[in-house]
């Protein structure tokens, strides 16, 4: 599939932005700056980038507890994300959601979701809205290999199939549900094989190769926009860090395995390929990296300097007429 120079630059910028965001966030979390847990997605950058390269702000994505990469690929502001994770009032959700609930409706980001599998029907619903309104938009649901054991994936794929909805199911198979390996917990070697049971195409994609993801996603999204129904993509990928910031993955996986995956890292692979094909040069790549390094540093400074939410925020954005809501004081 043809990629414009602008799109190539966007792809590299986006993948590097996700990488840097996650690395810096992990450092900040260890320093105690995050007010909660951080589930990082470095290693998995090619997936959300290759998918979202085909989407506009009017398309909707649903995400997971490991959702920073999805947010960034959908165009969500990294300073607003960092501030949210730091629990600040300037965060995208005013500090009321945190890492697992970042949303940005203006960007078509329907929310990260802390319950495994619970976000999948929401993306199906976004696709149902699109069909009812006839506006040509699509819904994309990101979820992990662990979520494929939940009932919602079955219900969602069946609904999307029988109603022929413009939805793309994107399974980011990073091979571990917390500490549980996929070969133990999932009944098939390729989860994409299950798509046949729902009469939809199921495609296994190298999730470390952004070009492969870009091509597969382009086809699936074009199919959805043409009214031909849903597609299931399984991206084989790997998270470089533990399940969350304090998890040591070496308690359940071997360093040799990590090295094999890191040898296929999506960023150097991209760099090698664009330089070989004379599409971008090292000077430009370095300039992008420097810009993003600065952006993420600024995001941390913004988050640090931002105010905490006022206590009255506890009671906003939900109806609270119950008179005993403040520990019996009212």
């Amino acid at each position: 599939m043809e990629i414009t120079p602008e799109k190539l630059r966007w792809i590299y910028t986006t993948m590097y932005r996700i990488r840097r965001f996650e690395e810096v966030l992990l450092e900040q979390t260890v320093l105690g700056k995050s007010m909660g847990v951080a589930h990082t997605s470095d290693g998995e950058e090619a997936g959300p980038t290759g998918i979202c390269a085909h989407l506009t702000d009017a398309d909707w994505i649903g995400s997971t507890h490991r959702g920073h990469g999805h947010c960034i690929a959908k165009g969500v502001d990294t300073a607003g994300m960092m501030a949210e994770i730091f629990g600040k009032y300037t965060g995208l959700c005013k500090g009321k959601g945190g890492s697992m609930h970042i949303a940005d409706f203006a960007k078509g980001m329907l929310g990260a979701n802390g319950i495994v599998g619970a976000g999948i029907p929401l993306a199906v619903g976004a696709a149902l809205s699109a069909k009812l309104k006839g506006n040509g938009t699509v819904g994309v649901s990101f979820f992990g290999d662990g979520a494929t054991g939940e009932g919602t994936i079955h219900e969602s794929m069946n609904l999307a199939s029988v109603w022929k909805l413009p939805v793309i199911f994107v399974c980011e198979n990073n091979h571990y549900a917390e500490s549980t390996p996929v070969e133990y917990a999932v009944s098939v070697p390729d989860i994409a094989d299950r798509a046949a049971g729902y009469s939809m195409p199921g495609v296994v994609v190298d999730g470390m190769d952004v070009f492969a993801v870009y091509d597969a996603a382009g086809e699936a999204i074009a199919r959805a926009r043409a009214g031909e129904g849903p597609t299931f993509l399984e991206l084989k990928t790997y998270r470089y860090h533990g399940h969350y910031h304090a998890d040591d993955p070496h308690t359940y996986r071997l360093p040799e395995e990590e090295e094999l995956w890191k040898a296929r890292d999506p960023l150097p692979n991209f760099e090698r390929r664009v330089i070989e094909q004379d599409l971008m040069d090292e000077v430009e790549l370095e300039r992008i990296r420097n810009e993003i390094d600065q952006e993420i540093q600024d995001a941390v400074a913004f988050a640090e300097e931002s105010p905490l939410p006022p206590i009255d925020e506890l009671y906003t954005d939900v109806y609270t007429n119950y008179s005993n809501s403040v520990r019996g004081l009212r």
Binding site: G91, L92, C93, K94, G95, K96, G97, H101, A103, D104, F105, L110, G111, T316, D317, V318
Partner: peptide
């Protein structure tokens, strides 16, 4: 609505 800070 609450956890997204009033969005949606």
């Amino acid at each position: 609505r609450y956890m997204f800070g009033g969005q949606g």
